[in-house]
Design a binder for these strands. Structure first.
Lengths: 106, 106
DNA sequence: TTAATAGTTCATAGTTTTGTGAACTGTTAA
DNA sequence: TTAACAGTTCACAAAACTATGAACTATTAA
C-alpha cells in the first residue's frame, strides 16, 4: 500500500472524530455501550441525523454495532479511540489556556 | 463554557487531523521542526495549498510556528498530537486487519 | 534600490459534508 | 395480520472545505 493511500485512510479515520455530535457520542460511549435510542435521548436532534453519524463512525472503524432484538447497541471499537480523543481534548485545553494567557497580558 | 461549545471546539481540533496532507505533515514533524520549504519538498503540491493547511493546523492549536530570517519553522504544539495520531493509525490498522479477515473467510 | 527568496492571502470554482423530512426495513406485541 | 416500535436509507438544499493561480508582504542579497 502506498504512503499516500495510508495518509488518506488515516485521515478518513481521523475525520470521523471531527464533528461535535460525534465527539459527544464518543464521550458517551467511553465506559459502556449504549443503544441508539439512549444516545438519541442524550444528544437530541433528529434520529436520521444521528443514524447517519453513527453509520459514518462505524464504517470508518471507530464504532462497533450489535443488534439485540429491536435495539442496536453501539460501542467504541477500541479503547484507543477514547484515548486519542482524550489526548486531543488536552491539546484543546492547553491551546485555550495559551490563548487566555495572551489575552490577559493585554 | 457549555458542553456543546466544548464539543464544537474539540471537534474543530480533531477536524484539523482529518486531511491526508495534514496527516503527512504531522508524521513529518514527529521528531523535529521543519521549515515550510522542507515540508513542501516532501509533500509536493502548491505552496499556497500547503500554506493554507499549515495555517489551519496552527490556528487550531496543533502546530506552532516561529519565524527565523526568511524561513518559517513549523513544529507540533505538543507530543500529545503525535500520540493521538499514532493511536488513530493503530485504530486504522486494526480496522484494516478486521476487514481483511472477513474477506479471507469468503 | 532593485531583484530574489520565502511564504501568505485572496477570490473563486468544484467537491464534500451536513441537516432535514419522507419513505422504507426488520422485529416484536396485540 | 396488523399495528407499533426502533432505526436506516434516500433525495435534496444549504453550508463547509479544498485546490488553484494570481497578487501580495517581508526579509535578504546584489
Amino acid at each position: 500500500m502506498t504512503n499516500k493511500k495510508i495518509f488518506e485512510l488515516h485521515a478518513d479515520v481521523c475525520k470521523a472524530l471531527g464533528h461535535p455530535l460525534r465527539i459527544e457520542v464518543i464521550d458517551l460511549l467511553q465506559e459502556k455501550e449504549l443503544c441508539f435510542s439512549d444516545i438519541l435521548e442524550v444528544t437530541g436532534g433528529l434520529k436520521s441525523n444521528l443514524s447517519q453519524h453513527l453509520s459514518v463512525m462505524t464504517k470508518k472503524g471507530i464504532l462497533k454495532m450489535r443488534r439485540e432484538g429491536q435495539c442496536n447497541y453501539y460501542s467504541l471499537s477500541s479503547k484507543k479511540v477514547a484515548q486519542a480523543c482524550r489526548l486531543m481534548r488536552e491539546v484543546l485545553i492547553e491551546s485555550l489556556k495559551k490563548q487566555n494567557a495572551i489575552l490577559e497580558k493585554m
